[in-house]
Every structure is written in C-alpha cells, then in structure tokens.
Design a protein around this nucleic acid. Structure first.
Length: 482
RNA sequence: GCUGCUAUAGUGUAGUCCGGCCAAUCAUGUCGGCCUUUCACGCCGACGACUGGGGUUCGAAUCCCCAUAGCAGCACCA
C-alpha cells in the first residue's frame, strides 16, 4: 500500500539568501494561470519557504491591451488552488504615480530622454548604432516634453521615453530601449492613464521599491535583466540575484494565453478549464492535484535547459497522491447486457479500496443479468470472472450475449487465465459519461459514485477520474489518467 | 543579420564550478517476473544517455576550440 513516496529533489541553494529572501510572482492578468506560470510560482514559493521571508504577488497590469478584467479574479483563484504562501499583494496599476516620479527622476539624471522619432526610423538607427535626434536634447527640454506627455499633448505613438544605454552595445536589444509609451485606447479597467510604463521600467522600479532580493524567471527575460540593470545603475540601487530557467513546453498543448483565448473564442475549446488545455483550472477539473503540479515542477527544477515536459511525469506524481485516497468503483463503458443462466442470486461486496479494508465495501446485488463492457465479450467458450462475484462462460456472443455460471472458485478462474472484469447489476446502473482528452465515453457506473461529487475515484481497469457532476440524468466524470 | 543561453537514456533529472571515487544518479516509461478478485498500488529484475569532431592532460560527461542542433532577445508585450 500506498504511502506516496514523493522524494522531492532539493533545489540548488541561492546566493545571499541565508538571512531570508523577498521574492515575487508577477503574472500579467491576461487569463488564468497555466503550467508555465505554475513553474515560476512554485519555484519562487519553494525558495521563500526554504529561506524564509516575504513572497509578493505583483499583478503586472501595465498593458491595457493585455488585461482581462476577469483574470484578476482567476489569478487569485489559481494561486489559492496552488497553495502559494503569498504575503503581499500589489497591483502595478496602483503605482503609476510612482513610475511617473521615478521616470522624471531618471530623465533628470540623464538616464532617459523623450523620443518623438518614428518607430521604423528609430529601429534602423538602432541597427546602425546611430543616435536619433532626440537623444541629444537638453535635460530641461526632455523634462518639458515629459510634462507634455503627462499632460496629454502627445497622441499615441508620437512620443516615448527611452532609457539611455549604449548605442555601441553589441546586442541590439540593449540599445536605448523604451521605458514609457502613450496609449489612448483601450482604456485601462482599473485606472485612467495615457502614459504607460513599459515592463522593464516598472519591473526595475518595483523590484527595488519592494525590496526584492531574488528573482527566478524564465530565460526569455535574460535580455530584460540586462536592460533593467541600466536603471538600477542610474539610480545606484543594488540589483537582486537573478536566475533564469529554460523554456518549457508540454507535449501537445499550447501554453499561450492568447492562443487559448482564440481557441475559446472560435469554439475549439469550451472554456479556460477545457480538459485539453494546460491551465491549472483544467488540471483541477481533471482531478490533478496541486501537490502533483508542485512535485512535477520541483522535479524539473531551475535548470536552464529547454525542456519538453511530459504528461507522464505529471500523471505519475498525481497517481502517488490520489491512488491511496481514491475509492474504487466499477464503470462499464459501452455496456452490453449478458444473461447468465444457472447462477445463484447473491450480493457482491467489493472493497472500496484494496488494502484499506476499513474503508468498507460497495453493495452490488446480482440477479440473472449483468452489464459488462461490450469489448470484453468475444468468442463463445471464453471464460470470464466477474470481479468479486463468480465465473461465467460465454455461450453466444451476438447482440444478446448468453453466458452460463461456472462456479465461484477464484483459483479456477486464475488457472484458466480468465479475465477478471468489472460489471454492474442491470437494476443498479447509473448512466455515466466519462470525458477524456480524446473524446467521450458513454457508459454506466455504480450508484455509489453519486456520493463522490468533486472527488477523484478510480474506475477499476479504466483509470482515475474526477466526478464532476451528479445530475438526475446521470453522472459526468472527467478522466484523469490511468 | 546581430546578441546571448543551452546540449546526459523515450521524458524529466543528478554529476559539470574545484578533471580521476562516473563502464554515469534518481524518477518516469517500456518489457519480464512476483503479489493481487482492477490493466491500480507494492516488490524484484531488465532495457536505455554524456550531440559530433578536434585539442589540453597520465587521465575529460567535466577544461578549451570548431561544427551542428534547439531556444530566447533585437516590440511604444509581459
């Protein structure tokens, strides 16, 4: 039995963490959390738990084009599900005055300038390592332009604030990147603004102001880390310790919020919790436990190699968790009724959980006929054992299969290598639809399943499933994995 | 095109910093067996990898160079 043996690998130690850490999880509220978010969230969480300190949830809603008002709620729900040890919550949209203040100061320090160049033109100049005309403006003029920006005198796209870096930098990504932009639409759901900070600016300011000591994030941020460094240096701030893990995909699934949204819009997916998606709410619906996600993510660790995550690994972790606690039931897909002659009426009492007798038994009365998976009825002459009942021999396979009772000796069934299969009394079969990633399975299950709404059960010989809904017309279950 | 990161079995991962104890760890998977009234769990066993080529060295998964492959960035996204 069944002690989950989860030996979770230890993460590599963090530098300068001995006296505690302040870390952050900083999602963009564009949709619910998915496995990619979970990796960042769990790794940071694990380090905060290990070293002690604060764990800041920072909602990065500085791009109104990518804010879904619903997501504020969904992100919180998903974090609750994951069980993160969040200690502080901040919304970047509450902090625009701060960004303006530090933006102005950066200009005063000569670390940034207002640029009114055409985008395309700037891009070309940048590639050629050439300064744009705005770069040489006096600080006073820049401040004046900055005030005009804040005053609404520039229209969207006609002015931005750029950080003065190094035009000769070999990496074009470093050269004078933008810190603020103007956006006249769409409106931000939480605030009124037209001057928006860009991620590299707001993140640098907030990491400093919030006292973030360590940042664990994907390597797609490596360039951003270097860009943010310029801002830290202009202000003379200490930089956090960074660690960038590799890119992660999961086989057969898109982890892009925008693509998922499009799939939902076009009707490919039913919603954010469609079981074919890699969102945490889809996992939850399928009976995948947050602990399994944590374990799987911790196993992957903080390596900087790009990986293709396999469902197998997640399922294995989940099975460790759910197997010991999932009650067993019979589910008969595509049932066919078999009449059994010469069989004594009796009542079967299969265990709710093998090896855990104290959990009790189910009650399945037998009377003349049973429902079994049609795929199990093959040729006449086949010996089958109905699990926890008795042995039968198929006499005719056709549309109305007939069988004959051949005794209840388990030893006999084993000796003749009979399949031991699940079955249901005809009078006690509840309609049940099992939804899988590959499609739906119609069948019937035990009445006892009606008490398991919201729980994960194991359908014997089929696999684990979460009982999603118990309705008058039947049961809806979502397949977890084998 | 420019810049950077990475490369261990089907998948994930340890080892790489400080070369020898690595004929390479653990998990998962697959196969075989045991246990078992589930094709679950558990137990036993097997399978399976240092991207390629040079170099340094008595000795390289580990250091250096080249190649190849993958990824990321070069957005008025995060």
């Amino acid at each position: 039995m069944a002690r989950p043996r989860v030996h979770i690998k230890e993460l590599p130690p963090l530098e300068k963490a001995e006296s505690g850490v302040v870390m952050r999880f900083a999602p963009n509220p564009s949709g619910p959390l998915h496995l990619g978010h979970a990796r960042a969230a769990v790794l940071n969480d694990a380090y905060v738990r290990r070293y002690g300190g604060r764990y800041v949830l920072r909602i990065e809603d500085t791009d109104p084009k990518r804010v879904d008002p619903e997501a504020y709620r969904m992100v919180q729900e998903d974090i609750g599900w994951l069980g993160l040890n969040i200690t502080d919550i901040v919304y970047q949209s509450d902090r625009f005055d701060l960004y303006y203040k530090y933006g102005r100061e950066l200009i005063e320090r000569g670390g940034a300038y207002v640029c009114t160049c055409d985008n395309e033109m700037f891009r070309e100049l940048k590639q050629a390592k050439t300064a744009c005309p705005c770069r040489s403006a006096e600080i006073e003029d820049n401040l004046e332009s900055w005030e005009k920006m804040l005053g609404g005198e520039f229209y969207e796209g006609s002015a931005s604030v750029r950080v003065r870096t190094d035009l000769d930098h070999p990496d074009p990504a470093m050269r004078d990147y933008p810190a603020f932009r103007i956006l006249n639409s769409p409106p931000h759901p939480r605030i009124e603004a037209t001057v928006y900070p860009l991620m590299n600016f707001s993140v640098a300011v907030d990491d400093h102001l919030l006292g973030i000591t360590h940042v664990i994030r994907g390597k797609d941020h490596i360039a951003n880390t270097r860009r943010q460094r310029y801002i830290f240096d202009y202000f003379g701030w200490d930089v956090p310790v960074y660690r960038h893990y590799g890119r992660m995909g999961i086989e057969g699934v898109v982890l892009s919020t925008s693509q998922m949204r499009e799939g939902i819009r076009s009707g490919v997916y039913h919603g954010w919790d469609d079981i074919r998606l890699g969102t945490l709410r889809a996992f939850a619906r399928r009976g995948i436990k947050p602990e399994a996600v944590r374990d799987a993510v911790m196993d992957i660790g903080v390596g900087d190699t790009d990986i293709s995550f396999s469902w197998e690994n997640l399922y294995a972790q989940n099975k460790n968790i759910i197997d010991p606690v999932s009650n067993r039931y019979f589910f008969v897909p595509d049932p066919v009724m078999v009449h059994i002659s010469d069989a004594p009426r009796q009542v079967a009492h299969p265990l709710l959980h093998p090896g855990q007798d104290d959990k009790g038994t189910r009650t399945l009365p037998f009377n003349e006929s049973v429902l079994v998976p049609s795929s199990e009825i093959k040729d006449a002459g086949t010996m089958i054992r109905l699990k926890d009942l008795f042995n039968i021999m198929i006499e005719s396979a056709g549309n109305q299969p007939q069988a004959v009772f051949t005794g209840d000796s388990l030893a006999e069934a084993r000796a003749s290598k009979a399949q031991i299969i699940q079955w249901l009394p005809v009078e006690n079969a509840i309609p049940c639809r099992l939804l899988t990633q590959e499609g739906d399975l119609e069948g019937v299950c035990e009445p006892g399943v009606m008490k398991e709404e919201g729980n994960v059960v194991q359908f014997e010989r089929v696999g684990f499933a979460r009982i999603d809904a118990v309705k008058p017309e039947g049961i809806i279950a979502y397949f977890s994995h084998r």
